[in-house]
Amino acid sequence: MKAVLGTMVLVLAAVAAPAGAGEIKGTVSFTGAPPQLAPLKVTKNQNVCGATVPDQSIEVAGGHLENVVVMVKGSGLPKPPPEKIVLDQEKCHYKPHVQATGPGATVEIVNSDPMLHNIHGYLGTTTVFNIAMPIKGQKIPRVLSKPGVVHVKCDVHEWMNGWIVVSDTPYAKVGDDGSYTIKDVPPGTYTVTAWHEKLGEKSQQVTVPASGDAAASFTYGK
């Protein structure tokens, strides 16, 4: 019993917020007119996918840039706990288009289409997973063990495109309103980086006070 209690204490200590931890908050905006991207042409399985699918590589709503992941870099930061995320293949595109998680996370890959997808994840040029999924409703888990940006493609449908950002430091995906909050950041000075699949990265330094907040906002566009 003592051993079990000791293990529970260690687990709770590992996930507890650092003493005096604060938050980093901000927004990601887009200035100027957003590009008008043509839809992507569907070349096979149009009975399921339709004739086209939207190009999600740059999406702007209400002046806010979507599909952005913000990460904090520096020493002494807590590691994100392992979690389970879901990546669905529906009507020949990935849902969600962009998501973020930490190393050790399990991604449950789902095929919601009544046809073959071959989902192929790349970390740089290295294959992370490569799975044929011919059955509707099929679900296959894979563990994302290394940090980095995983580019997800389909070897059957070349227009399918998605991203999983695996961060070994605190992170947040920007919400629909263009804002984000990264919680449980220890006091200190850090580099905050915004990542976007097509428009690249932007970084700035922030100092988080003890039990306080810091601000870091980013602007893309012209």
Rank of each mutant, 00 (worst) to 15 (best):
H157Q: 11
D113S: 12
N118C: 09
A51Y: 00
T191C: 01
G62K: 05
K183L: 03
H93D: 07
V70Y: 11
V68W: 14
L12A: 09
P80E: 07
G175K: 03
Q205Y: 00
E158C: 04
A132W: 01
D177T: 13
G221S: 09
A3K: 15
M71D: 03
M133T: 08
Y122S: 00
H120P: 12
P170Q: 06
G102I: 02
G62L: 08
I119R: 01
A132H: 03
K153N: 08
P147R: 00
I135Q: 14
K136C: 07
S217L: 03
V110S: 04
F218L: 08
L144S: 03
N47Q: 02
V156D: 11
V150T: 07
N118E: 15
Q46I: 11
N47H: 01
G62E: 07
P141T: 12
I140Q: 10
E59Q: 13
T193P: 13
L5S: 09
T106A: 10
H151P: 01
K136N: 10
Y220W: 13
A216R: 03
A215W: 02
K146N: 05
A216I: 03
M71C: 02
T193R: 14
M133H: 04
E23I: 10
A132G: 09
K25I: 12
K25C: 12
L77M: 13
V15K: 08
G124I: 12
V165R: 00
H64I: 05
G175D: 09
E108W: 01
E83K: 04
T31H: 12
A214P: 07
H196E: 04
P96E: 05
T101P: 05
G148D: 04
V72I: 14
H120W: 15
P186L: 08
P134S: 10
T43V: 07
I109P: 00
A51Q: 02
Q89A: 09
E90N: 14
P134D: 12
T125N: 11
I140P: 04
V149C: 05
T125C: 01
E23V: 13
G102H: 05
K153V: 08
V156A: 10
A33Q: 14
Y94D: 00
T181N: 11
G137C: 10
L199C: 09
R142W: 02
N118D: 14
